[in-house]
């Protein structure tokens, strides 16, 4: 597929791919902002939800934060390797990042099955509705990030499209950022 000349131009000084990813991040900020804003408004409005929130598993959330922070580290190491042109090394680090995402999802699935089996389903009360919707939307973004990272890693293995390693890295750091705010909101506000 012959890439248009338009992509090669950079009047703003930012390479086209990265400029596009910044706009993706900006539109994601307002999406998560809307959801977490609604959640926060309700939490301040309903202090009694703290009793429901008490049943969230802080340790699992904490461990997941550790997992995502580590995967962010490997994502940025992948970017550093890609900058030096070492495609296969970048692909290895991207693989580690995806592994981190997988561990995150596995821990989350155990966590959710425990909570659902104890009756805290999405329709239990509105706290749990927000809990599953926010964590679910974040989980969806983790899965989407891992899928794209798979493609980027496949290309990086053959030393092709290395600039995309940085782009998927930025997206991954954003997903980690959302979790950094989601963790205290859902798990610590008890």
């Amino acid at each position: 597929m012959m890439r248009p000349i338009a992509t090669t131009r950079s009047a703003t000084g930012i390479p086209t791919g990265r400029l596009a990813v910044w706009w993706v991040i900006a539109s994601e900020i307002v999406i998560f902002g809307g959801l977490l804003g609604g959640y926060l408004l309700h939490r301040f409005g309903h202090p009694e939800w703290a009793t429901a929130a008490a049943h969230t598993n802080t340790m699992a959330g904490g461990f997941n934060t550790f997992v995502l922070l580590t995967s962010s580290l490997s994502a940025v190491l992948a970017h550093a390797a890609a900058e030096k042109g070492e495609g296969p090394k970048a692909a290895k680090y991207l693989g580690l990042t995806m592994l981190g995402g997988l561990v995150f999802l596995i821990v989350k699935s155990f966590e959710w099955t425990y909570e659902i089996s104890h009756g805290y389903t999405i329709t239990a009360n509105t706290f749990w509705s927000f809990y599953y919707t926010a964590a679910g939307l974040h989980g969806f973004h983790v899965i989407a990030g891992m899928v794209i990272m798979g493609f980027v890693a496949a290309d990086a293995m053959k030393n092709r499209e290395l600039q995309r390693v940085e782009l998927i890295g930025i997206y991954w750091h954003f997903v980690d950022l959302v979790w950094i705010f989601l963790f205290p909101l859902l798990y610590i506000a008890k």
Binding site: S27, V30, G34, H46, T126, L137
Partner: peptide
């Protein structure tokens, strides 16, 4: 792009209200 985000979150919440029965916009459930 800067204004549609909250409505996408809202549409997700409304879709769950419609299909799953959550209570995001139901005053009786908070």
């Amino acid at each position: 792009m800067a204004s549609v985000g909250p409505l996408i979150a809202g549409a997700l919440m409304l879709l769950f209200d419609q299909m799953i029965g959550t209570g995001f916009f139901d005053p009786d459930r908070g």
